[in-house]
């Protein structure tokens, strides 16, 4: 197995994996979608809300704000030592109080401890006019995305098979004619080799090949050569998300293996 990083940003990861079976990548993808925990606001106590939005709408908008999550410091509430009462090792508290005219942003949520400050601080929650005000207190807890989408930190995870384009070298003139009709910068033809410039635009090339019923260009996809990509919403680094999801997958197999041993 070989890994080549194509793009690594705090919120985005694209890697090329060679010599791997698709089911392994798919299981990681599914863990990212449904098992990777993160913090999200779960309890809202509204003391005063005279804004134009209903309490429920504000509570819903608060739930969708990504909160930076350090998974090594937190436990699930139902597995915590406080037995579900809520303590600093399973709960993060914020307060919000705003009266003046203007927009209330997610950065106005004041954390009880400075280390939990919200990094995505310019998400508008509500706009206040004249003497309207909003005073509330919230509790954020860990959760998994299969219980509610607000606990989903990973966006659009997916994998595609790395394509290789094969051409019939005897019909090079026909290929040159075909390339003229394509959108500019889609492909380049160098020394009898046709290469696509941006791999995410492969469907465009495929649709042209389908439409013109072309048989001198063939796109082969290798299922053991995979491009895996996903984004995160900012609550966890893309790199950490992948490492954590592999840890979760490992734990699941360990548990499964232990159960199998008990069968006689």
């Amino acid at each position: 197995m070989k890994i080549e990083v194509i793009d690594l940003k705090p919120k985005k990861l694209v890697i090329k994996i060679k010599d791997i079976e698709p089911y392994i990548v798919n299981s990681i993808r599914r863990i990212l979608i449904s098992e990777l925990p993160k913090l999200a606001i779960n309890d809202v106590v509204i003391y005063d809300n005279t804004s134009a939005l209903f309490d429920e709408i504000i509570a819903h908008r608060l739930g969708l704000i990504p909160i930076p999550t350090d998974l090594s410091l937190l436990n699930f509430r139902d597995k915590c030592v406080c037995k579900g009462k809520g303590c600093p090792s399973c709960t993060v508290r914020y307060t919000l109080s705003k009266e003046n005219e203007g927009t209330v942003h997610s950065g106005d949520l004041q954390p009880a401890e400075e280390s939990w400050a919200i990094t995505e601080d310019d998400i508008p929650i509500v706009e206040l006019y004249k003497d309207q005000r909003l005073i509330l207190e919230v509790e954020a807890i860990l959760g998994t995305p299969k219980t509610h989408a607000k606990w989903q930190s990973v966006i659009s995870p997916g994998y595609r098979f790395n394509p290789t384009i094969e051409i019939d070298k005897k019909r090079i003139n026909e290929i040159k004619d075909f390339i003229k009709d394509l959108p500019s910068n889609l492909v380049t033809l160098i020394n009898d080799k046709l290469e696509i410039n941006d791999i995410s635009k492969l469907p465009i090339l495929e649709s042209y090949i389908d439409q013109e019923k072309i048989d001198f260009i063939k796109i082969k996809k290798d299922p053991n050569n995979i491009i895996f990509s996903f984004e995160t919403d900012g609550s966890i680094d893309a790199n950490n998300a992948l490492l954590k999801s592999i840890e979760i997958l490992k734990e699941k197999y360990n548990e499964f293996g232990k159960l199998l041993k008990t069968i006689k």
Binding site: L64, I123, P124, E127, A149, I155, S156, G234
Partner: peptide, 20 residues
């Protein structure tokens, strides 16, 4: 009403770029 916090389909946080 007010811009939704996230994209309905994929869940990307889009509301912070709306003002700009």
């Amino acid at each position: 009403m007010i811009i939704p916090v996230r994209c309905f389909s994929c869940g990307k946080v889009v509301s912070q770029v709306y003002e700009e």
